[in-house]
């Protein structure tokens, strides 16, 4: 659950960056948050490896502490011009996302700001993954073996944590700190049930993710409920359907 931890732990980074930049759309914000995410994973790492605290406890300690720090910072800065509020942090502001418009030539509206931020993040992640695919594959399957080959697993570990932090930060502005974890985990977990290659898992996970967002959006508009809630609900239902079907087909194979 490192993703969960990071999504909460980035809060102080966002707040600090926000104080300095004074606006919600600055690149500094992203940078600050990503940096805090990486620091959080370093603290978790330190607690579990060096101080020998249990893994779950290390994560729990780190993210609640950093999250609390962020909450206090928001509360104490709340009197000023800071319009970062807890609701928005926890649940995102997808419903009001159109308020941050990108307008070119004075009046041509080309979509919400968050969309472009996500797009840039997408390409960064895609490029890093393409270039570093072998390394990520190796350390996620068998880190000790990677070390035995003399590969610097620390660098790969932090690179991966950096990507998780980046994903969390750009997602979190839109869907909030709680449910961003669902977007991070549910689509790949669903994909893993039916693929047998890492490459395919990445592609199928993206497809499931996008599918859940689109279907979830329309379901939520129809019932007039939270968009994010609808999306995660669709992703979760999809997970259980795939789980059921893949178990069912395995049983068929065994009988045949």
């Amino acid at each position: 659950m490192v993703g969960d931890a990071i999504s909460h732990a980035v809060l102080p980074g966002i707040v600090v960056a926000y104080f300095f930049s004074g606006d919600k759309t600055s690149g500094l914000l992203l940078f600050g948050a990503t940096l805090t995410g990486v620091i959080a994973s370093a603290i978790i790492d330190f607690l579990s490896r060096k101080a020998k605290i249990q893994g779950d406890a290390s994560i729990g300690i780190t993210y609640t502490l950093l999250f609390a720090l962020g909450m206090i910072m928001i509360a104490s800065g709340g009197g000023n011009n800071v319009d970062l509020d807890m609701n928005c942090v926890l649940y995102g502001d997808i419903a009001t996302i159109n308020l941050d418009k990108v307008i070119v030539d004075g009046n041509l509206y080309i979509g919400p700001y968050a969309f472009y931020v996500e797009l840039v993040a997408f390409f960064i992640i895609l490029i890093v993954l393409l270039v570093g695919f072998k390394g990520f594959k190796l350390i996620s399957f068998n880190e000790d073996f990677a070390k035995s080959l003399g590969i610097n697993t620390g660098i790969w570990h932090y690179l991966m944590m950096g990507l998780v932090a980046l994903t969390t930060v750009v997602g979190f502005e839109v869907v909030g700190a709680v449910l961003v974890v669902g977007f991070l985990i549910i689509p790949p977990a669903t994909a893993q049930l039916i693929v047998n290659q890492l490459k395919n898992m990445l592609i199928v996970a993206v497809a499931f993710g996008v599918g859940a967002v689109i279907i979830g959006f329309y379901v939520a508009s129809w019932f007039n409920v939270s968009y994010t809630g609808g999306m995660i609900l669709v992703a979760g239902i999809n997970f259980f359907i795939v789980l059921f079907l893949s178990n069912f087909s395995k049983k068929l194979k065994l009988k045949a």
Partner: peptide, 11 residues
């Protein structure tokens, strides 16, 4: 982990 025999031996 999603990998084949060939994938792992290639490591």
């Amino acid at each position: 982990f999603p990998a084949s025999v060939f994938d792992v031996v290639k490591m």
